[in-house]
Simulated assay, not measured.
Amino acid sequence: MNAHLHCTLQLSANPRAARLARLLVVEQLRSWGLPFEDVAQVVAELCANAVTHGRFPGRDFRLELSVTGEGLVRVEVHDCRGDEPPGEPRYGLAIVDALSNRWGSSQGPVPRKSVWAELGS
């Protein structure tokens, strides 16, 4: 694979968002001819966290999915609660930790935070 693939989704921060994000990512990865099981689970967990812990009334969250030429898949979820960085891996983040090569978070610009994970080679 030589191309860098990228997809961005803007989603409403409601209880169905994580499931919708997972379904959309599965279809996107299928269209790119890539495996999707682990990535879909990481997307669902990060989006569920954005809805549960990062929700701010009236604000959406953004999901970005990218694949490098080397086959590394990066998932980024941006929400509007920069005041609440993710804590130690528990529950959903333990799944993200187990399935990812690495994951983390970053602040900014205010009031936003991003939680990301990388999977693959």
Rank of each mutant, 00 (worst) to 15 (best):
M1V: 00
A3N: 04
A3S: 11
T8Q: 02
T8D: 04
L9R: 07
Q10T: 04
L11A: 08
N14I: 01
N14H: 08
P15I: 03
P15S: 11
P15D: 07
R16L: 08
R19H: 13
L20H: 11
R22C: 12
L23M: 09
V26Y: 01
V26M: 13
V26C: 11
Q28P: 09
R30E: 11
G33R: 14
L34V: 03
L34G: 05
P35D: 00
P35F: 01
F36I: 02
E37K: 13
E37L: 15
Q41W: 09
V43P: 07
E45S: 07
L46I: 01
L46H: 04
A48F: 12
H53Q: 07
H53V: 02
G54C: 10
G54K: 14
G58E: 00
D60I: 04
R62A: 03
L63F: 07
L63G: 05
E64R: 06
E64H: 07
G69T: 08
R74P: 14
H78T: 09
D79G: 02
D79M: 09
D83E: 05
P85M: 00
P86D: 00
G87K: 14
G87W: 06
E88R: 15
E88D: 08
P89L: 00
R90M: 00
R90F: 10
R90D: 08
Y91F: 14
A94S: 11
I95D: 10
S100K: 08
S100Y: 03
R102F: 13
S106C: 14
S106W: 05
Q107N: 13
Q107W: 13
Q107M: 12
P111F: 03
V115E: 01
